[in-house]
């Protein structure tokens, strides 16, 4: 891990995500991300408050648990439910998405590492809810998983399957030209932690989930078998 750089600086909005605003600043001298779930004008105010505080609490608890278990996720610094605020470690690095798009050497290995991290996370009973290559920051060769905004505690095969399905779908839409090797590497990494049997089970679940989608060609084929 890199040594925190103790420097101040002006707060900077790094992303206005769909879920929250991310502001880069410092916290007790350490580089930090302030994640604020801002009220959404299109949501009923009561529904809005319910969703923001529930999600803030769950996200904070999950990244804290994963960090304590030794997984590469940001460290938790501070939480305020009423403000929808989480302050956490700023992970300096490149997005996995960009590294794959630039075909940086070893990008396949990074995806394999990511597969391991996700398998460990699932083993701890956490599903991320939005595993995309834009939600992985690579720092010194380690893929840090960020944005646990939609994560939840679950051991259900269904939820694990959806998690993996979302990753595959994100790869298909973002990295369609190298999707095959990326998906293979992901499962290799996953299997090295969870075992081939478990991967088989998950792949079967993913298939089932995809068949549930609307107008899927395979569904008809399945029915006609």
């Amino acid at each position: 891990m890199t040594k925190p750089t103790y420097r101040g600086g002006t707060p900077k909005i790094i992303a206005l995500g769909a879920e929250a605003a991310l502001i880069k600043h410092t916290f007790l001298g350490m580089p930090a991300v302030y994640k604020v779930r801002l009220p959404k004008p299109y949501r009923d105010p009561k529904l809005d408050l319910r969703l923001r505080s529930e999600r803030t609490a769950t996200e904070a608890k999950i990244i804290h648990d994963l960090r304590l278990a030794g997984l590469p996720v940001p460290a938790l610094y501070y939480v305020s439910l009423s403000e929808g605020l989480i302050v956490m470690e700023y992970v300096e690095g490149d997005l996995l998405r960009d590294l794959i798009n630039r075909r940086v050497s070893g990008y396949v290995d990074l995806v394999r590492e990511l597969g391991k991290v996700i398998a460990l996370m699932h083993g701890l009973g956490v599903v991320h809810g939005d595993i995309t290559t834009s939600n992985v920051v690579v720092r010194e060769g380690t893929p840090y998983v960020i944005d646990f905004g939609l994560a939840k505690y679950s051991n259900e095969l269904e939820d694990v399957g959806v998690d993996v399905h979302l990753f595959i779908r994100a790869v298909e839409s973002t990295h369609y030209d190298v999707m095959e090797e990326v998906i293979i590497a992901f499962f290799e990494g996953y299997a090295s932690i969870a075992g081939e049997e478990r991967v088989k089970e998950i792949k079967e679940k993913v298939r089932e989930i995809r068949l549930r989608g609307r107008y899927v060609e395979e569904r008809r084929q399945k029915r006609n078998k």
Partner: peptide, 22 residues
């Protein structure tokens, strides 16, 4: 009806907003 409508529409807009961000 009100709750169902608010939840359904909000969910659609939320995923659309995520799509825009992405």
């Amino acid at each position: 009806c009100y709750t169902v409508r608010e939840i359904a529409y909000s969910a659609i807009i939320e995923v659309s907003e995520r799509g825009l961000a992405h």
